[in-house]
Design a protein around this nucleic acid. Structure first.
Lengths: 244, 244
DNA sequence: CGACCTGTTGATTTAGATCAACTTACGTGG
DNA sequence: CCACGTAAGTTGATCTAAATCAACAGGTCG
């Protein structure tokens, strides 16, 4: 049985904006169904198009681009609430691939109904554009991190970001959150080698700032980690964002 | 005297999508006026909000983020047709700053009318979201470049991109385009030091792939430069994109 | 049990950063 | 008209953060 948008467990979280009854009714119609996918399944392919758009309901994945020689760049980590396929929906094709890291449940939308969304529900279109702007903002931050920060700062930045995102989603258990990725994924996200990422993680562990093992990330002192990453203790994540 | 949207010299270019008479009429009303700004003027500030949104009509500038220690990351180069202030218009604040590099003419829009745009002109809202998706796609590409490419590939990639963008805007004169930036700007865009950027430019010059001097970039063989950058001779730029 | 995947650690190499001069070009003011 | 200051570009010498290479350990799965 699929979850009705009315009962969406995600939307109840304070990190998401409330939705009017009318909007909810529309989303219910817009949603084609749900899809459960396995660990390590490709969802969208770079350069291709897709008749479907998705919102991650549960589980985690990642967005990535890969070059001809096999080099891979992780663009972002996909967490519950993330919208997938905007580029496919608007432009001809995706600029990156999306794949699952754990088992995931996805809300499935019909790409061709996207235009209807703009036409009949401007507040939903506004929300969608907002999400695009949030992603753009994040990518700018990531670009700064790859371009100007040291390995230690990069790793601290990424772990802090993930910790914050997972926390506002209510997935934190005291000082720890689930983090089912491999070190290789983090390395590919930060433009570092696997070996150096591993050594940098060891340093942060020794400093008592972040302990990532067994698929869980422990951050006893987020402010300390923020200082290590040389970022102002983020508050941007506080503002509720839309959910599609 | 300000240019009427009907007579917009930019929109006539084939790289932009055509607009219906109705859309044009709306844009005319949406546009508050024009603004001519001088070289080196800040347009939007990171972390702040703005009552106005802009489209670059002529001139060049750049988007950048800077860290507390003065480190600067150039996010993208601003060319005619670029929309400025999306983040300010939707979220609370800008994630990056925008400043002019040459004298620029900007079309000025009222931020508070943005909602009206979504409500009454869905095809314009669609166009705006499309632009956001284009930017997101570009940033993904940039992230890949900073994370996984060598200095030579980075510089080649950036110069090729600029050459292509300026070419479709009709600003190319045979094999050369105007490029009024400093080497420091390019270095800050690519996450390289100024000195190394300079040396890398010298290599590309010696290889006969790109010659950038006196504010002009000469690219005798774009395909060769693309090969040097290790990118498939881009065709994505061929598809017309919307203009706001 | 052996193959494979992920993580860990040490030794060595290298791409690019940093440091330091020096050159042009372009004002600006005496 | 020239002295001076400043901004951009260029080049060589040196240093270092991170890559690469290599080996091994613990888990898991067929």
């Amino acid at each position: 049985m699929t979850t009705a948008c009315t009962d969406c467990p995600l939307r109840k979280r304070p990190c998401f904006q409330p939705m009017s009854a009318d909007e909810l009714a529309f989303m219910e119609r817009f949603k084609m169904g749900e899809m459960v996918i396995d660990t390590g399944t490709p969802i969208l392919m770079e350069g291709s198009n897709s008749p479907q758009l998705y919102t991650a309901l549960s589980g985690m994945g990642l967005r990535s681009k890969s070059g001809r020689d096999g080099a891979r760049q992780v663009i972002n980590f996909v967490l519950p609430g993330d919208f997938l396929g905007l580029q496919a929906g608007l432009m001809r094709e995706m600029g990156h691939s999306v794949e699952s890291t754990t088992q995931m449940t996805l809300c499935v939308f019909d790409r061709s109904a996207l235009w209807l969304l703009f036409r009949s529900h401007p507040e939903r279109a506004f929300a969608l554009t907002w999400l695009a702007a949030v992603e753009e903002s994040f990518l700018g931050d990531a670009l700064f991190t790859l371009g100007r920060r040291s390995a230690g700062e990069r790793v601290a930045w990424a772990l802090l970001r993930l910790f914050q995102r997972l926390s506002v989603l209510g997935m934190a258990d005291r000082t720890s959150v689930p983090l089912p990725y491999r070190q290789q994924d983090l390395a590919d996200a930060l433009g570092l080698s696997l070996v150096h990422t591993n050594k940098t993680l060891a340093v942060l562990r020794r400093e008592g700032l972040a302990e990532w093992s067994g698929g869980r990330l422990h951050v006893p002192d987020p402010a300390g980690l923020a200082a290590r990453a040389d970022v102002p203790e983020e508050d941007a994540a506080d503002m509720p964002r839309p959910l599609i």
